[in-house]
Design a protein around this nucleic acid. Structure first.
Lengths: 199, 199
DNA sequence: ATGATAGAATACCGGTCGGTATATATGCTA
DNA sequence: TAGCATATATACCGACCGGTATTCTATCAT
């Protein structure tokens, strides 16, 4: 094991860097040369390591999702806290990641909106998959809360779940355009008022 | 007047068609050849008429905004109806335009998120300008409603205004990804519950 | 040392990009 | 009908695109 010339660049770092470039310039707006400059890995290396441009993008987005999105969502799903607590923690974590300049904030919503269109069916499918996971988690959480009496029985738990699921996208949009700590957090404050009280 | 060879294609139709192509493929993903095919106007004609690609995009987006966004926003601003009525009418009009397949729904949010990045400062500025107009209108409406006693005095009218302003972006996102009449309208129903009752 | 292995670096491919120069067609005015 | 003004159509430009073949270099096992 360990034969051959050692790598100059760690492939996982390459994926992280690539995601930032894609986030900054968009999929179509990013050239392979941009990625070569940013990552330090030469073009043939990128192709050998990750396949073509679209595969590289998919792998970047997947890694990003598994490192950031999945843990956040799992924490929310598995939380034993009352719904308002868990919900607020989820949104504040999303908001913090949006404010982290080292983090390509909002790439999910960007992917869903633009990269994943009819032109790139695989990217579209990836985006829809993530969207669906989030929405399902939210809806289930709200339905469970209703069963547990945390939410009044006369509301449409699914609609409320989907509403809040969509608010994480809104945070992504605001994070890219308006990003400012106070605004994101006061947005969350207002959103939380949607939660009906127990009775 | 009327000298020279007559136009084969109406420039305003060209702008409408161009916006649809940009909406479908994104700014970077759209080539001038795509636009030539879609609009029927030859490339030199496009350049003579609209300037370069970025100018054409700006003119398309501006026209779209003035034909759709401005009237909607003006109706909302000038409405004498109670706030919940005016708000719901605004959101339902936005939702309907999202569901209109002839209408490149959500190009504002797309522009803000992706086209208008550091790579295209002019597009970014245009997006920010529209964003600001909408936000200002919402904030003013909520502040006025508070003064008129339509909203309780103990809430942060600005934060509520910005929250609802952002919901029109969320409708844009949902319209592009989830578009389905029931979902958009039940999203609006839930969002409306944020409005605190008079007292 | 030496050969095998695997990444790095360079140069290169056909195609398409945004943008334009040139020539032709069409209608108005006089 | 002559001529001008304006749009259209074609062909073309250099640059850059995504992707690859080839060569060079560094590290391993032997």
């Amino acid at each position: 094991m360990g034969r051959g010339r050692p790598r100059k660049t760690d492939p996982e770092e390459v994926l992280d860097t690539a995601m930032k470039v894609f986030w900054d310039k968009g999929f179509e707006g990013t050239s392979m040369s941009d990625l070569v400059c940013a990552t330090g890995m030469a073009k043939p290396g990128l192709y050998a390591c990750f396949g073509d441009k679209e595969s590289l993008y998919k792998k970047s987005l997947t890694r990003y999702y598994e490192n950031l999105g999945t843990p956040l969502l799992d924490d929310f799903k598995n939380s034993k806290d009352p719904l308002p607590i868990a919900l607020r923690r989820f949104f504040e974590a999303v908001a913090r990641s949006m404010l982290d300049t080292n983090c390509p904030s909002g790439c999910f919503v960007v992917n869903s909106l633009v990269e994943g269109t009819s032109q790139h069916p695989e990217l579209e499918a990836l985006g829809k998959e993530y969207d669906q996971k989030r929405r399902d988690a939210f809806v289930k959480k709200f339905e469970d809360a209703q069963k547990n009496g945390e939410l009044p029985p006369n509301i449409d738990a699914r609609a409320f779940g989907e509403f809040f699921s969509a608010q994480s996208l809104t945070l992504g949009v605001l994070g890219r355009t308006d990003a400012c700590k106070n605004k994101l957090f006061s947005f969350i404050d207002v959103a939380m008022t949607v939660l009906p009280s127990r009775e």
